Amino acid sequence: MSSDHPLDRPVWSALTGRQSHLTLKQGAALRFAPDYGLFAAAPDISAQSMADLAALVVAHGDVALVEAEGPPPIPGVAVRTNAVCWQMVADEPNEVGEAAFAFEDLAEADAPQMLALATLTAPGPFFARTHQLGRFVGVKLGGQLVAMAGERMRPPGHTEVSGVCTHPDHRGRGYAAGLMLEVAARIRARGEVPFLHSYAHNTGAIALYQALGFDFRRELVMTTLTRG
């Protein structure tokens, strides 16, 4: 499970680096605190590391691994879901231009609406404090948040674009693309590289990401573990 590139093990890279202050630890295994996210990782697949991972699940609930392959069988836990993901990276700058719509930076006061929108549209795991993992921008109409995009995992030199979603009543207006480009531009302005993950079967989303300058880097497996 070791790798020289931080994106080969993005969760481990984030949890042992800039986001280590958001983690819970059991032995050698780490996870985001549940209010922030599901993601967890261990240094390797040794019996002790897997036992530590199982203890995290028992103590704090389901976790999600994002690795080159799924874990071996782990006593005490069960696989709830298993899916192939595409990891995509925007190495070259994108032309952002002037947005065709008004958007704004989202703040703590927007947290209830952010959680409600993510719960409705299911862009990926999103919890009460997921919005605190990075900066988010959004579109509001009549005071209602109808679209947003933001940041999630932050491995060294990189930041993940995530939480991209649009209310079903307001799709087809370019909100997702415009907000993603803005988030990616802000990441790049900090001297970092934007990246993202998409389920491999979500060909529509992948086509959008490619049009926005994100290129396939590698396949990874997202495995969700629950109490056995």
Rank of each mutant, 00 (worst) to 15 (best):
M1I: 11
S3G: 11
H5Y: 09
H5E: 14
P6F: 07
D8Q: 11
D8T: 05
R9K: 09
R9D: 13
R9N: 15
V11Q: 05
V11G: 08
S13V: 07
A14Q: 07
G17A: 14
Q19C: 07
S20C: 10
S20D: 13
H21D: 15
L24M: 14
K25R: 15
Q26C: 13
R31Q: 13
F32R: 05
F32Q: 04
A33H: 15
P34S: 09
Y36M: 02
Y36S: 03
P43Q: 05
D44P: 05
D44C: 04
I45T: 13
I45K: 09
Q48W: 02
S49T: 14
L53I: 11
L56C: 05
V57E: 09
V63L: 07
L65P: 03
V66G: 01
A68R: 12
G70Q: 07
P72N: 10
G76E: 08
T81C: 03
W86A: 14
M88P: 02
M88D: 08
A90N: 02
E98F: 06
A100S: 13
A107F: 11
A107P: 01
E108D: 15
E108S: 15
D110S: 09
P112I: 09
P112N: 11
Q113G: 05
M114P: 04
A116M: 10
L117G: 04
L120A: 15
P123S: 05
T130M: 01
H131Q: 12
H131C: 12
Q132K: 15
G134D: 09
K140M: 11
L141E: 15
Q144C: 10
Q144W: 04
V146E: 06
E151S: 06
R152N: 08
M153K: 06
M153D: 10
H158R: 13
H158D: 05
E160Y: 00
S162P: 04
G163K: 01
C165A: 04
T166N: 02
T166S: 12
H167W: 04
P168K: 07
P168A: 07
P168D: 08
P168L: 05
R171S: 09
Y175A: 02
A176N: 06
A176H: 04
A177G: 13
A177N: 03
G178K: 06
L179G: 06
L181I: 01
L181Y: 01
V183D: 04
V183K: 01
V183S: 03
A184W: 01
A184K: 03
G191Q: 07
V193P: 00
P194D: 04
L196H: 00
H197P: 05
S198G: 07
H201A: 11
N202P: 08
N202C: 02
Q210Y: 01
Q210F: 02
A211V: 00
A211I: 00
D215F: 00
F216P: 00
R217Q: 13
R218P: 06
L220K: 02
V221L: 00
T224P: 00
L225I: 10
